[in-house]
Amino acid sequence: MKKEMTKSEVRNVQLGLLDFLDKICRENDIEYSLAGGSLLGSERHQGFIPWDGDIDVMLRRDYYEKLMPILSELEGNYQLHYYKKNIDYQNYAKFYDDRTILKSFRDQMYDGRIGVHIDIFPQDYLPDDKLERTKFLKKIFKMSEALASTGFPAYISGTKWYYQFARFFLRLPLFIKHHGKNREVAEELDQLMQKYDSQKTKEVGFVSSKYFDKEHFPSEIFNDYEDIKFEDLKVRKIKQHKVYLKQLFGDYMKLPAKKDQVDHDFYHWFWREENDRV
Rank of each mutant, 00 (worst) to 15 (best):
Q90N: 13
G47V: 10
P69D: 07
Q79W: 09
Y89V: 04
L17C: 08
K84M: 10
G41K: 07
Y64M: 00
S33I: 08
I49F: 08
K85N: 15
E65G: 02
E31L: 01
L40Q: 11
W51E: 11
L71G: 06
Q14K: 13
A35Q: 01
I70W: 13
L21R: 05
D22Q: 05
S33N: 09
E31G: 00
L17W: 00
R44Q: 14
A35N: 10
K94L: 05
C25M: 06
E75A: 14
I70R: 12
L80K: 08
D19P: 00
V57N: 05
V57A: 07
L21F: 08
L34R: 06
E75Y: 10
E73Y: 09
M58R: 04
L17S: 06
S42N: 12
L39A: 13
G76N: 11
D88Q: 13
K23Q: 14
N12D: 14
V57P: 08
R61F: 00
L17P: 00
D54V: 15
Y96I: 09
M58D: 05
N77G: 11
G53T: 15
R60N: 05
K85C: 11
Y64N: 02
D19T: 00
L59W: 00
C25F: 02
M68G: 03
N91S: 12
Q90R: 12
Y82K: 09
V13F: 04
P50L: 07
D52M: 08
N91L: 12
R61L: 00
D54W: 15
C25W: 02
I24H: 08
Y63I: 00
G36N: 10
I55P: 03
S42C: 13
N28T: 02
L80R: 12
L18T: 11
P50N: 06
N28A: 04
C25D: 03
Y63H: 14
G16A: 06
C25L: 02
G53D: 15
E75P: 07
L17N: 06
Y64W: 07
Q90H: 13
D54I: 15
A35D: 15
R60I: 08
Y32E: 08
L71D: 03
H45F: 14
Y92K: 01
M68Y: 01
E27F: 12
F20S: 01
A93D: 02
I24D: 09
Y89F: 15
I24P: 04
I24V: 15
K23V: 09
G37D: 03
F20V: 04
V57S: 07
L80Q: 12
I70F: 13
S72I: 04
Y82W: 15
G76P: 09
D62L: 09
G76Q: 11
H45I: 12
L15S: 05
S42M: 11
P69K: 07
D56C: 12
L15W: 05
I87N: 13
